[in-house]
Design a protein around this nucleic acid. Sequence first.
DNA 1: AAATTGCGTTCCAAATAATGGAACTCACAG
DNA 2: CTGTGAGTTCCATTATTTGGAACGCAATTT
Lengths: 260, 260
Amino acid sequence: MDKTQENSTGTLGKALEVLNIVASSPVPLRFTDVLKLSDQPRGTLHRQISNLIEEGLLAMNRDHSYGLGLRLLQFASKAWSSNEFRTIAEPHLQILHEQTGETVHLGVLRGIEVIYLDKVESRQSVRMYSQIGNTAPVYCTGVGKAALSALSDDELNARIGLIEFRRFTASTLPDAKALLKEIDHIRVEGNAYDREEHETDICCVAAPIYSHNRHFVAGISVTGPAYRITPEILTSWAGITRAAAAAIMANMATQLSPRA
Amino acid sequence: MDKTQENSTGTLGKALEVLNIVASSPVPLRFTDVLKLSDQPRGTLHRQISNLIEEGLLAMNRDHSYGLGLRLLQFASKAWSSNEFRTIAEPHLQILHEQTGETVHLGVLRGIEVIYLDKVESRQSVRMYSQIGNTAPVYCTGVGKAALSALSDDELNARIGLIEFRRFTASTLPDAKALLKEIDHIRVEGNAYDREEHETDICCVAAPIYSHNRHFVAGISVTGPAYRITPEILTSWAGITRAAAAAIMANMATQLSPRA
DNA sequence: AAATTGCGTTCCAAATAATGGAACTCACAG
DNA sequence: CTGTGAGTTCCATTATTTGGAACGCAATTT
């Protein structure tokens, strides 16, 4: 009776934990590898994996290592194409892209991560799945900081408390204090910036998107290479980025949720 | 003790059944709608849904209808980018696209469906998730028929027995007999064709890809609009499509699975 | 060749989590 | 204000999951 906030989703939660272990590993894991990373006994883990494989969520490679199953793609395809928020935002991303000529991202806040829901770019050089569905830390992305700025102070503090700050580049915000200070700025200005805080040579300007009660917060951003996008250019896009966010929120109010 | 091949994945299977009900519906479902489609009592279903929501696999909209959760995107992103087969095939898709100038698809067989794993096209007009992860019936797609042709007769017959033939266009194969006949052709020729059998004005030429033991079968195809791609042009791509499939299989043999 | 080690797999009594009927709440309609 | 329908909560019963131990099989070591 001490296990600090036990998992309340029972069997499902345990299954997903296994899935997560496989998903999080950069290198394919074999049975014993998963066993070491989970804290489940062998028999149990074996049955869990068998079930996941039978359901198509996990796949066993020929060398007995595991990978994520194709059924996940099937679900995700549906999740993406039927997502109301994304559908509403889509034309606005397109417009913002035409206005700037740079890559536009749409991301939503989930815990202390940003999940990228969509992107629009001209040269489709990078493959799409390489971004959509990807997650990034809140504290070093434009979309993430914009989203945080839309939260109530209570929510904000609760989430920031969970962040483990890691330095990605020289300009990554180092701690909660720096992040809170920046969020104050964002709340006043209405825009968040990422100035090479996550990846060197990548900068962006972002604006928050939120529902009336702020249970749902997201962000939109325009991203480009730092050598081409000077701080001045970035600042000059702040207005249209906010405008895109505002337009999306206006559409949400009319098109989403008859009630609530 | 009569329930015809009971689900053996226990709780997980039940959870995924709920997820599937939500995923399969063209229109958002509310609690009672799901209740009617599942055969679970209210209390049980409610808890299952709660768990799925807590895990991020399901999301509740503000009008109490359900949609698939964003965590699925996260998993799918990983599943896609780390998929060995897709990685191996990718450069060959690219080459085939450059040779033909048309859209190239990669799909794998799962049961009696094809799951599209990747595509390459020039005008990135259609959004990517609109294809990748999508499924289509085996019997009316080039990739599907190519994949079937690689199966052993036993496997083939078992799967064809499960198909419910539905007419999509005037040229959709109407029944198992027609499909088996076509597969005989494909086995001889080495190529499958889809001549507007799934969608009007869309045709393609495909070739099968399979592992040594044929436990894994897939296909690659070149697709284009019928008004531009005459049957002669399509036929002229048969060779390079087979060549691409052969190249992928050669790479699989060397790069995949040290053992087995 | 025999013994050992590591890995994946199977089994079953005990522990635990899921079940499902009934009851409760709230919002809206008659 | 009563009735209906939708969503939610509760808890004794029931069914599933658990996890320790043992098995089979290769590859490696003695």
